[in-house]
Write a protein that binds this DNA or RNA. Structure first.
Lengths: 205, 205, 205, 205
DNA sequence: AATGAATGAGTCTTCATTCAT
DNA sequence: AATGAATGAAGACTCATTCAT
């Protein structure tokens, strides 16, 4: 009772506490699904009492939204990092994006699950719709610029915006498919699918 | 009270009544989402009393499953029809598939919504997982054969199974994206995205 | 299990069921107070399951409102009846009103409790405020007309509307006082207080 | 941080802090009602942290009780003051009582609200019942003595205790009515009602 | 066969109180 | 002494299912 490091610590760090709840929400979404998550599940997973959720968030819905936002931010950050590491060549950057979209360890199963949950529920929730829209829109525009540059570099005729749309939803379809049925799609296969799409465009003789 | 010939609802045909409930379920899923559908919503939409659902189905879950199966069957049927009409050429068939996947009137918004609901929930429901698996697996194999034949015809080197996987999940990603945020993706754009994917593979100079 | 008359009857009469819930609400308000009543209390008192309250009423609040309305209607009815029986003389009718306001069996303790609950909560609930206003307004106007006629009959100068206001709130004050502290105020004393008020006005030598 | 002379809130005077909490409770009762007051409401209104309520009072209930007592004491004090100023004549003192019962500035709306809250809840709370009883009893006895003397002075036959009971509950009924529906009863009308009651008794020709 | 009344389990939220700092 | 984070009990509501008619 004296040397106990955590447990009962009544962490004085509100941000750490919030983060713990968000992490628990992410894990819970991955394990039992966005729609079956309960505040009890989350609080038990977090090792935090039920009532504290109301302390830090407006309610269960807001917590879940924060969880999704957090996941999206992490996906974005890890992808950007990988893209930066690929250098300046636009095609190289696109390949790096494809690899990062399914690459360990930055991109976890939990990430895919939460995204699938977002995609699968956005159609019926204004908040999720907006979030989904904002997230993809920014990403898509960045990709469109990459495709544009890549096409110019390689001297290929290309509708860059359409290519970006195709690319993003191919990624999304693979994420969703992976979450829905992991026997058919693996991290490896998904990456291959994405890469062959780029191959089809850029590896023309 | 006894000679009433046809009150419309008082259908004596159990199958017609089941179908009415299934249709109501499909509509309800499209309108308020798979997870927010209630038996009351469905029975009101169908104009059938709440309690009757228990007579025809084991419960709400089974009704929803039937609804998803029905939608999948309709999608499959309309797609097959379009493909048959495209003649024998494998490439033509693939293009027909792409067009049918987003083509009116066979492919309705309700269809996309239900599929998005299936994809977005399959990860956390054994029944949906299995259904999802069966549906895609058969479809994917047929597409793989088409890609195989198409590659041979055109003299292209191609991992047919990977192409089929890519193709199906591009379609799925576009469906899901369309349902999640219809401001960005339209029927037209989705179709274009799909077609340009095929273009990238087959329209090489 | 076969001759049981009620209990498990699953009464097919919705109105009777609603009334049973309203009665239970009235009793519960009397016993544990308007603000401490729970849906469990009411449903247990009524011998009806918790969930049925949502079936018949929009929620707990509406049920309580209905209970208050019912009590008000009963008070009004029994008072009107007593007044009618007093004949045509306005003064006699006023005395009858005073007596009816505290007279058994029409006017029960539960009635007083519910009214006290209404009066004590109306200030902070729009719904109760409006109900309270409507109830007293009609009653006060009728009394004002009586005071008017009585003053004319007896040749007394009187602000009839002020007298009606005084009279109604004297009654209310006595009800509230009786509910709040029954050791000091009895049905008998309350009636006497009301009657001496009328005496002071009309029994002038 | 140490020499800060008077930050306003950082009052080192426990009594001042208790008083601040009590005042906040009074205000809160007036604004949102006795039963809807929360410790958060009070502490925010007082500008004092939530947890401190437990330091100064046994709990929320005791704080509310103190608030009611404080209000009662203030009402008593201001009334006694007004009565004293009315001289020795018993009738004059009664009229002064009536006026003081609705007179600015001593008698505020918050006072009426708290009293209405007391009256409307006393029936279901032993603590409030007792407080209510003690408060009215002493007051009623003083009034009874006044009525007694007034009757003797004016040579009127009068049940002084009954008159006092009538008087007190007329006042209470007007308070409660004012709080419950201020559109019908104003300070002015309430006072008039009280005064005409005294008129009816004492202004006999 | 068909209805909708009835049930009760499950969930979110509110809130008074406690307690580590 | 003072704070506000943390807890958990309690209550209202929703809803799938059951069942008497």
């Amino acid at each position: 009772m004296s040397v106990k490091p955590a447990e009962g610590t009544r962490s004085r760090d509100p941000e750490a506490r919030k983060r713990k709840l968000i992490d628990a929400a992410i894990v819970s979404i991955g394990e039992i699904g966005y729609n079956d998550v309960t505040v009890d599940t989350i609080s038990e997973t977090a090792g935090i009492s039920r009532g504290l959720i109301g302390h830090y968030f407006k309610g269960k819905d807001q917590l879940l939204l924060e969880a999704v936002k957090t996941v999206a931010a992490e996906i974005g950050a890890s992808t950007r990092k990988a893209v930066s590491a690929a250098g300046e060549d636009a095609v190289a950057r696109l390949y790096a994006t494809a690899r990062a979209s399914f690459g360990k360890p930055a991109f976890t199963e939990a990430h895919a699950c939460v995204w699938a949950a977002l995609a699968g529920n956005a159609g019926w929730s204004p908040e999720l719709t907006q979030l989904y829209h904002e997230l993809w829109t920014g990403y898509r525009e960045a990709l469109a610029r990459l495709f544009e540059r890549a096409a110019q570099t390689r001297g290929i005729a290309l509708d860059a915006r359409l290519a970006a749309l195709t690319f993003t939803h191919l990624i999304e379809g693979l994420w969703v498919g992976w979450v829905a049925d992991s026997t058919e799609i693996s991290r490896q296969r998904a990456e291959s699918a994405c890469l062959t799409y780029l191959d089809a465009i850029f590896k023309q003789p």
